[in-house]
Structures are given as C-alpha cells and as structure tokens.
C-alpha cells in the first residue's frame, strides 16, 4: 500500500518534470519554473538534493556579468540503466531565466559541463538535474554581480 502510494506520487512528479524538461519548451518567468519545482523539496517527489549529488560551481563575485564561468557536475555511474538525463540551469534574475538545458546519455561518461553564462544582476543560480529514474535533484548558488573596480 505504502509502496503503491509512493509510486503514484513519483509518477505524478515525473510527469511534471517531464513537461519541465521537454525540449524547446520555454518558461517565461521564475514562477513558471517554480510552479513545476514547488511545492518545495519532499522526499516523495525527490525535488531537492538530500544526497548531495548535484555540484554547481560559480564564482562568488562575477566582475563581468556578460561572461560568468559556470560548471556543473552530477555524480552518477552513467550506465545504460542509471544515468543523468538532463540538467537545467536557471538564472532567476535574468530577463529569460532558462539559461540552458544539458542532455546526457550513457555515452557522456560523466555528467560534467563547463560553460559561460550571462547574469543580468546579483541573483541565485539553480542547477536542476533529472535522472533516468525520473528523480529530480536541485541545488543553487548565490552570485554577486559587480563591476570590477581594481586598476590592476
């Protein structure tokens, strides 16, 4: 009984995140994204990252919002049965918050990507990972965007 209930819940959550990760679908606002992610992390829908498998690396201070280095790593064996399917990067304070979605396959070997993004202002950057089992994990970093004042 208990396990059936959990299954159902997981399925429901999976449907929501499936829509979320649907190729080409755009989320105009942070609210749109939150409507998918919220209610906030619960074990039942696995949104959250209790296991700490999502690692997001961003500078604490970005002196040039036009080009901010970012990298994300999701711990996974990347086997045919168990791999990271997608990672979405969200910049809540950008005019278009959906920065990029990475798609992986077992051939990726590791779910690890480095890129450069634009940040319109000081804000939180989210990394949301969806695994092949449908579970969703997220983490976020705060990035302060300032104009570099050093002469050297």
């Amino acid at each position: 009984m208990n396990s059936t209930r959990r299954k159902l819940l997981t399925k429901g959550a999976s449907a929501a995140v499936a829509a979320f990760f649907c190729n080409g679908k755009s989320y105009a606002t942070v609210e749109d994204i939150h409507s998918v992610l919220d209610p906030p992390p619960k074990r039942d829908n696995n949104v959250g990252d209790e296991a700490g498998i999502v690692k997001l690396f961003t500078p604490e201070i970005a002196e040039n919002g036009n080009s901010v280095p970012i990298s994300v790593f999701v711990a996974s064996q990347m086997s045919a049965e168990d791999y990271v399917a997608s990672v979405l990067i969200v910049a809540e304070g950008n005019p278009n918050p959906q920065v990029v979605t990475f798609h992986f396959t077992p051939l990726s070997g590791e779910a690890k990507v480095k890129t450069r993004m634009r940040l319109a202002q000081t804000q939180d950057v989210l990394a949301v990972a969806k695994l092949s089992d449908g579970s969703v994990h997220k983490t976020s970093n705060h990035v302060k965007v300032t104009i570099g004042g050093c002469g050297a």
Binding site: N23, G24, S26, N66, S67, V68, I89, A91, N94, P95, N96, P97, Q98, V99, V100, T101, F102, H103, F104, T105, S108, V113, T115, R116, M117, R118, L119
Partner: peptide
C-alpha cells in the same frame, strides 16, 4: 551530449 541554449549563454 546536447543542449538547448537560451539567451543567458554568453
């Protein structure tokens, strides 16, 4: 590997 890019990519 593939990705869908938004306007937030430099």
């Amino acid at each position: 590997f593939s990705c869908d890019l938004g306007t937030g990519i430099a």
